[in-house]
Write a protein that binds this DNA or RNA. Structure first.
Length: 872
DNA sequence: ACCGCCGGGTGCC
DNA sequence: ACCGCCGGGTGCC
């Protein structure tokens, strides 16, 4: 089996039998299937490449087919920014972000290479500029690539327009396409999102090194020494802040033309940004055994998307535990170096305050312990717990004070001692936590007195430019601490797609940020090796009975949603819509996962308030338990007392009540601006008691997806009984169902779900990792609401492909030592598959990432998505 | 198009 | 005056 070849070529020594196979049960239609596509495209695995390896499926109730549509031209060769000319001669219009068609015009009397550009209605918009057309004509005429265009900025003048071209094709043609473009003097960009591009510039050559203090016992790697040097120079920077220049004795801000007599204060400090994946990694630790550093860690990445939420588990084994702690490591060593070598001048304050989420407090302490020589004394004080010492004089004498955002916040306003101490340095771990300027914790952080400031964050830009503002505030970067300047000079231009704005943002971050990724190189060698990830899509065909049931439910759902459509209240009732979609997704997995149809059937208008409430609560439960899992968008913290609105957004009850109270009748959902009332908020009643009655063999029945999965698992076992598989589903109940056939086929398996405590999880993980014969080979993995994840500022209902893209990327980069095979089971002709198709149409990732779409656009998009899903 | 490019007018500063 | 420079005319393929 080719898989083995690849795996052994990785050269893993000590655990040959720990091959990881990642079998994915896709019950979580929407985004899984979306991701499926994304993974193939962006994970760099061509579907065509994998045909031979794809597990085949020969069960009588299900069959596997290839994803025919994507088979041929699924590889992205890259993108290119070109120009459309001659707009004034044609009437076709296009809006910002819209797709355009490229049509060859070999008969054009002026140029036989002509490439015409048309909008979606087919009206001509213009032509591709002739030089570029000459390059494209060759490619298009020979079918070397399919060229797709999007106009990212729309029409900005009456003559020409920028167009982003994306080239798709078969792998064997990639070289030809690249060289053809190159011959005409064009270079394709690798497909990346805009912020990755932005950050690429941050990866400039920062190659100067610095030795650590003798007090640090851990030998430093090259890139760590470089980081150290950079950090030191940032702290001792006397450079003017970005965009300031000195002219004839005065200081000018080149963006605002503000002039000042005194030099603006330098920003002492900056942002340490690591590969985004590391944050996921850290995030994963919330859910995983603590401390995780000395086990072979499992990594979990969870994505929530599209309202029809989905969770992504990526799991891998790593033998390089220190990658967990890259940022902590840098900072920790840096602080030690400053304390023991550089020392601090007499006038300077002494202590460094480190603020971190509670969950990593111990990791910080471990770090200091781990990297310091035993015989040196670092005064580290943990400012936490009821007995913490609140004396300013005491804290001022420490070298390092460690506390959490919660502690800081709770002291804030109460004459906090943390506010009184003058800190040498304040370090924000997971600095993006303060991205909400209204949150108390942000205010508390900003009010700290410090000479130098650092932000550690894997994702300084999490979803949009907006997130950066608070970081700039914290760093006291003039003039951007004043919101208006930030808006005028950076945020608005960038949101509008203005290149200058992006360039400025870029310049800003370039100076202030050091970013390390797994792809970064030190001395020409990557810091870490990339893993190989293979993604397969397996289409499952429903049995006759299943299909009938599915169609019945779908018709019913369509009836309800059509009515909302007609009334224009789809998004107001998004919770209902979600519930319907979740039911369909459950049906794709197993019929027994959903109750009788009659429960929801058409009683919406006539039921009593109590019944209505009951009905809604059951829906909420359905929605929440399926993994709609967000932080509260008001406090940006994890949900406490979750309530759900009719528009299906979830908040902490106190948070949203406060919002409603302050706005009274005009209260709108912070995420989608739908009207909300406090009477319409529904509390999440908690999980139903996790019954596993399906264990009874007499009652149990199979389903097509179960059969498909079991066939694959059995086949794998027959090929190599030591292969380890992870079976991932969003629905714990489905995992319950899966336990039955697993037992029946004598699989030894473990299970990890949200109900288990840390200890139980640790046991489940280590059992699976046990290489000895007879150890479990399958792990059932689930995600429960309230877990971790990347939160999407667009809200539960929105779908942010940019984040998806980041995640794919991050997963790909992180699975560092071992190949991973993902198989996704998608039911043919179902909402699952529909989502695949929706995703295919959404290729313009950059646009979304920049947040250029208006709320209204996104609403329309979502309505359209629902239509597609329900065939309305 | 607040560009680039072309070609005619022009010619120390 | 076989150049440079200026400024007006001009503009998809």
């Amino acid at each position: 089996m080719a898989l083995f070849k690849t795996l052994s070529s990785v050269g893993f020594v000590h655990c040959q039998h720990l091959y990881v196979l990642f079998v994915w049960v896709l019950c979580c239609v929407l985004s899984s299937s979306m991701r499926g596509l994304g993974s193939r495209r962006f994970g760099g695995v061509s579907h065509a490449d994998l045909q031979e390896e794809e597990p085949s499926q020969s069960s009588s109730t299900s069959e596997s087919t290839h994803d025919q549509d994507a088979e041929e031209e699924n590889r992205c060769f890259g993108t290119f920014q070109g120009t459309i000319v001659g707009l004034r001669y044609y009437t076709g219009t296009v809006n910002r972000g819209e797709m355009v068609a490229l049509v060859r015009q070999p008969q054009n009397p002026y140029d036989r290479n002509a490439v015409m550009v048309a909008n979606v209605y087919g009206s001509q918009v213009g032509h591709i500029k002739k030089e570029l057309a000459a390059a494209l004509a060759f490619i298009m005429d020979r079918n070397l690539a399919r060229v797709e265009g999007v106009v990212p900025y729309g029409k900005t003048n009456s003559f020409t327009m920028t167009v982003t071209l994306t080239f798709w094709g078969r792998e064997e043609n990639q070289e030809a396409v690249h060289s053809q473009m190159k011959n005409h003097g064009y270079k394709l960009n690798a497909l990346k999102n805009a912020f990755d591009k932005l950050f690429d510039d941050l990866l400039e050559d920062r190659t100067r090194e610095m030795e650590a203090a003798e007090a640090v016992r851990t030998p430093l790697l090259l890139h760590q020494k470089q980081a150290l040097y950079w950090m030191t120079s940032r702290e001792n920077s006397s450079d003017l802040p970005p965009f300031w220049e000195q002219r004839s004795g005065l200081y000018f801000n080149v963006l605002t033309n503000f002039g000042a007599r005194e030099s603006p204060e330098s920003v002492l400090g900056g942002i340490l940004a690591d590969d985004m994946g590391l944050v996921s990694l850290y995030t994963a630790l919330h859910q995983l055994p603590h401390p995780p550093l000395n086990l072979n860690p499992i990594m979990v990445v969870i994505l929530s998307l599209s309202g029809i939420e989905e969770s992504y588990f990526y799991i891998y084994w790593s033998n390089a535990s220190n990658i967990f702690t890259l940022l902590w490591f840098y900072m920790c060593v840096f602080v030690c170096v400053c304390v023991f070598i550089t020392g601090t001048s007499k006038k300077s304050p002494r202590p460094t305050l480190i603020i971190c989420p509670l969950s990593v407090l111990t990791n910080w302490m471990d770090q200091f312990e781990q990297h310091l020589r035993e015989d040196v004394q670092l005064n580290l004080y943990l400012f936490y717990g009821p007995d913490r010492c609140r004396q300013a004089s005491f804290l001022s004498e420490q070298d390092v004070v460690l506390t959490t955002y919660n502690v800081l916040t709770s002291e804030y306003g109460k004459n906090s001692v943390l506010q009184k101490v003058l800190w040498l340095r304040v370090v924000l771990d997971e600095g993006h936590i303060i991205r909400n300027p209204d949150a108390l914790q942000s205010k508390a952080v900003l009010s700290l007195n410090a000479e130098r400031r650092w932000i550690l964050s894997g994702t300084p830009i999490q979803n949009s430019v907006k997130d950066v503002w608070m970081l700039m505030c914290f760093l006291r970067l003039k003039p951007f601490a004043v919101r208006e300047w930030w808006m005028r000079v950076i945020q608005r231009p960038v949101m509008m797609g203005n290149k200058e704005g992006l360039k400025n943002l870029q310049a800003l971050l370039k100076v202030l940020t050091m970013r390390r990724t797994k792809l970064s190189k030190a001395n020409g060698r990557p810091i870490l090796q990339l893993p190989e990830k293979k993604v397969f899509l397996q289409k499952v065909v429903l049995s006759k009975e299943e299909r009938e049931r599915y169609e019945l439910e779908k018709a019913e759902g369509r009836r309800i949603i059509s009515r909302y459509m007609a009334d224009g209240t789809v998004l107001r009732n998004y919770a209902d819509v979600l519930a319907i979609l979740v039911r369909l997704r459950l049906l794709c997995c197993h019929c027994d996962l959903v109750g009788k149809l009659t429960e929801t059937a058409g009683t919406a208008d006539s039921s009593s308030p109590a019944e209505l409430r009951e009905r809604l609560i059951s829906k909420i439960r359905l929605v929440l338990s399926s993994g709609v899992d967000e932080e509260c968008a008001v406090c940006l913290d994890s949900l406490r007392q979750p309530v759900i609105t009719h528009c299906a957004h979830v908040f902490c009850k106190p948070c949203i009540c406060e919002v409603i109270q302050s706005k009274q009748l005009a209260a709108k959902c912070p995420l989608c601006r739908a009207n909300i009332k406090s009477t319409e908020l529904l509390e999440y009643p908690g999980d139903e008691e996790d019954s596993r009655p399906t264990d009874r063999k007499d009652q149990w029945r199979s389903s097509s997806k179960v059969e498909a999965l079991m066939t694959v698992l059995l086949k794998l076992r027959s090929e190599d009984p030591t292969i380890k598989s992870l079976v991932v589903s969003q629905f714990t109940k489905f995992l319950n169902i899966l336990e039955v056939p697993l037992r029946e086929s004598k699989f030894s398996f473990t299970r990890l779900d949200g109900t288990m405590n840390q200890k139980a999880r640790a046991r489940a993980v280590s059992e699976l990792q046990d290489p000895s014969p007879g150890s479990p080979t399958v792990m059932l993995l689930s995600l429960k609401a309230g877990g971790v994840g990347l939160n999407l500022t667009y809200g539960a209902g929105a779908w942010n492909p940019a984040v998806e893209e980041q995640c794919i990327d991050r997963c790909h980069r992180l699975g560092q030592t071992r190949d991973v095979v993902v198989t996704k089971f998608v039911v043919k002709d179902s909402v699952e598959e529909s989502m695949l198709k929706i995703q295919k149409r959404k290729q313009e990732l950059v646009q979304k990432l920049l947040g250029a779409k208006s709320t209204e656009d996104r609403k329309q998009e979502r309505i359209q998505e629902i239509r597609t899903l329900m065939d309305i």
